[in-house]
């Protein structure tokens, strides 16, 4: 997408330069050709292809059906609280634990104002809106620690509203959920 955008930008600017430096080369192009060619024939196929691809990709990312692992993220000014509906006994913490290599559905809610759940390296974000419950499906391919931030402005503590996501290998994760500390 970036490369395509760069090529298109270069094309437009090259035509513009030509108009000044080599006007005779373009003198034969008629009004209709400029408008139909540049305004319709050039962009329409590109945009259709791009939008189509994006929509198909978007469909695949949707949290449809059930997955094995679920978590709850509750935002408040200015902290995140994570819990696990399948393991009600686990204390609510400020770190989200997930299994690596497995899709996880995270239900995001808010106790006060609008926040947004964002883990840049895991991709995607979703707003935490009071009264609403939004689900995002994430997957960490490798075990490790991922940094998360609040992406929607939520008042004077907004930039401090960071959190950690710890992705564990499946075994460790399961034993953690069974109650043992990692």
């Amino acid at each position: 997408m970036l490369a395509g955008a760069a090529v298109l930008t270069a094309l437009v600017l090259a035509l513009l330069t030509m108009a000044y430096l080599r006007p005779h080369r373009l003198a034969g192009v008629t009004a209709g050709q400029w408008i139909v060619g540049g305004g319709l024939i050039l962009p329409i196929p590109i945009l259709m292809l791009l939008t189509g691809t994006a929509l198909v990709l978007g469909e695949q990312l949707l949290p449809r059906g059930e997955v094995a692992y679920r978590a709850e993220a509750r935002a408040e000014q200015w902290a995140w609280r994570f819990s696990y509906p399948d393991v009600p006994g686990l204390p609510v913490s400020e770190t989200l634990h997930i299994p690596a290599g497995e899709p996880v559905d995270i239900a995001v809610t808010s106790a006060d104002v609008i926040h947004a759940f964002w883990v840049p390296r895991l991709g995607g974000k979703i707003d935490a809106i009071p009264g609403h419950r939004n689900v995002i499906r994430l997957q960490a391919d490798e075990p490790g620690i991922y940094r998360g931030i609040c992406a929607e402005f939520c008042g004077p503590g907004h930039e401090t509203m960071q959190f950690r996501v710890e992705a564990h290998d499946l075994e460790t994760f399961k034993s953690m959920m069974a109650g043992a500390a990692p």
Binding site: M48, L55, L62, R64
Partner: peptide
């Protein structure tokens, strides 16, 4: 035609 074409294939409520 183009803007509403997604009614045919995108998921309605998710």
């Amino acid at each position: 035609v183009l803007v509403f074409l997604p009614v045919t294939f995108t998921s309605t409520c998710v």
